[in-house]
Nucleic acid binder design. Structure first.
Lengths: 203, 203
DNA sequence: TGTACATCAGTGAACGCGCGTTCACTGATGTAC
DNA sequence: TGTACATCAGTGAACGCGCGTTCACTGATGTAC
């Protein structure tokens, strides 16, 4: 792979180099210098495209939230075929994203950068949460009035459980598990939905 | 606070300095040199008590798992007064630990050190998990035969949800939340237990 | 009780390293005429 | 089509910094006689 003095699309190449580094060594293992080297470029060149290390990391997270929100949206599919099926699909999409985009996921949730410092990051992260809120709202509407918990609570529960499964069981931290993360999340959400009165007790 | 040439109990002082640093700046913000400085000692002195940075960090985590296991054990209280109450108390203890011992918690779950490298760490971490498994087993026994899910699955579910609540809602990462982490976890576990058929639908 | 000496826990200087960041520069690209 | 020039995206050297770790050392402590 030869190239001349100019790179062509260094900005995105740096993002992808960062992604590979993060996926391999964790968000703390990623350094600006190594990302530059992976993109076959001098560290100083990075500053033509990003304000610094944190800015590059934030862009990685931003792109991650973009993909994440799109995946959730696609899985939710406007509540089709049923609110229940759509909600379950949304939960599965969370885990699928974490598995398929580990670099993005870690930049988003494990890199320790606070969204307050990057307004566009906060924006796109809110968008993802709103998608999950909508899935929960559609779900709640199928419950009889008077027995409807707040949708934001339900989405927070599912988000937390999904995140916990990813952190504890998708990463190898707890040693080999008898159950796959997908199975764990599926069963957890199943029992939870039964508790909400949305699944019959014998399913 | 004066002291002579010898410190007295440097080993534990270093552990506590590390804890304070981790609680304040995260597990990646902790450095051997800063811990030494906080303990009013030269960095080289650390090597009289620990093999290096990772070893000190592992000791912090080990002490954390010790406290953690003891707290869970205490909350479970041999399944008294009822298996259900004891189980709920165990879930609450998880969150209480994360809140009260943030340095320990982060060293244990967010520092990126793998238990495989520190055998005694793996041992004491297994002990904590076994306590939670026992709480789940006691719980399952109050279900009719034939409707008993594996206890290890239940404890994995609750562990994951608790961990997710800690990561997402106890740390300030998601901005101000309308609901406290304690409330979120309580409601999540409540709905989950109802799904298991352990709580009546109208509680 | 006093002294000699071994043991041990600290010091302080030094090391090599990789980091993020800056700066003046230069080679390539694109545009105006 | 050709030329002059502005713009831009890279280079390469240098910086100061803090890190983990090592080493020969020294001051304090405890023990034997």
């Amino acid at each position: 792979m030869k190239r001349g003095y100019h790179h062509g699309n260094l900005r995105q190449a740096l993002v992808e180099a960062a992604l590979a580094l993060i996926a391999e060594k964790g968000p703390q293992g990623f350094t600006l210098s190594e990302a530059a080297k992976a993109a076959d470029v001098t560290p100083a060149a990075v500053y033509r495209h990003f304000a610094g290390r944190d800015d590059l990391l934030a862009e990685v997270a931003r792109q991650g939230f973009d993909i994440f929100a799109a995946l959730l949206e696609y899985a939710f599919d406007d509540g089709k075929p049923t609110a229940l099926a759509a909600f379950e699909a949304t939960g599965r999409a969370y885990l699928a994203f974490a598995r398929k985009y580990p670099g993005h996921y870690q930049a988003m949730f494990e890199s320790g950068l606070q969204p307050g410092r990057h307004p566009d990051l906060a924006l796109v992260s809110r968008k993802a949460r709103e998608t999950m809120d909508r899935a929960a709202e559609a779900l709640v509407r199928s419950l009889p009035e008077g027995r409807r918990p707040p949708a934001s609570m339900i989405s927070a529960h599912v988000w937390a459980t999904s995140h916990g499964v990813v952190e504890l069981y998708l990463r190898g931290n707890g040693g080999p598990q008898p159950r796959s993360p997908e199975d764990l999340l599926e069963t957890a959400i199943g029992i939870y939905l039964r508790g909400l009165g949305l699944l019959s007790p014998d399913r």
